[in-house]
């Protein structure tokens, strides 16, 4: 994957920025390519729309801002409303289906719904919803390799929670692989 842009969004407190950190680390440290992470959030640390933007490339990244995301992940309605129109025409949008009511998808674009928060809740740990979502992302998109993402998760989460987070990742991954439409998103 030469150049790709991912926008992860939700509300403050869901671990969106950490998810972005993990994607960027997977690409730059574990795949040894280049990635930049930039973030937008309001003054509040809980609530409010927040978003993590990762630009990845085999080349040097001159422009670290997102122009048109190839992949857009939304884990809150506010964030979805704010950003859904920016996604690339043939891009992939992923929503937490219990938290987001989607609007019309651009023709050629793809929308995948999955219950990250519900799945995490099923583990008794709602706060790993971000990692469930990353597992899902690994299953349905070829922007980042699954192994690199796993390594990045392990080295980014608090010590002692690695096993829990890997379980969450696997849960999201398996869910993604079970989806009938889970082929790599509209890159062709």
């Amino acid at each position: 994957m030469a150049h790709a842009e991912i926008r992860l969004s939700g509300f403050g407190g869901q671990g969106i920025i950490l998810a972005g950190q993990i994607v960027g680390k997977a690409v730059s440290v574990f795949e040894d390519r280049n990635a930049t992470l930039t973030q937008n959030y309001g003054p509040e640390s809980r609530g409010g729309a927040c978003c993590a933007q990762v630009v990845m490339s085999d080349e040097e990244i001159a422009y670290p801002d997102i122009v048109e995301p190839d992949v857009f992940v939304a884990m809150s309605q506010e964030a979805y409303n704010k950003y859904y129109e920016d996604v690339k025409p043939n891009g992939l949008s992923i929503i937490d289906e219990d938290l987001v009511v989607p609007k019309a998808v651009k023709s050629g674009g793809r929308l995948l719904k999955m219950p990250a928060t519900r799945l995490a809740d099923g583990m008794g740990k709602k706060f790993v919803a971000n990692i469930v979502m990353l597992g899902f992302l690994a299953a349905v998109s070829d922007t980042v390799s699954t192994d690199a993402l796993k390594e990045a998760v392990k080295s980014s989460v608090p010590k002692g929670t690695e096993e829990l987070n890997m379980k969450a990742f696997q849960l999201g991954y398996d869910h993604g692989k079970r989806l009938p439409a889970a082929t790599p998103a509209g890159k062709e």
Binding site: G24, S28, V29, A35, T36, L37, T38, I61, P64
Partner: peptide
């Protein structure tokens, strides 16, 4: 931007 941007 440089301060808050994350990169290798």
């Amino acid at each position: 931007v440089v301060g808050h941007m994350t990169e290798k």
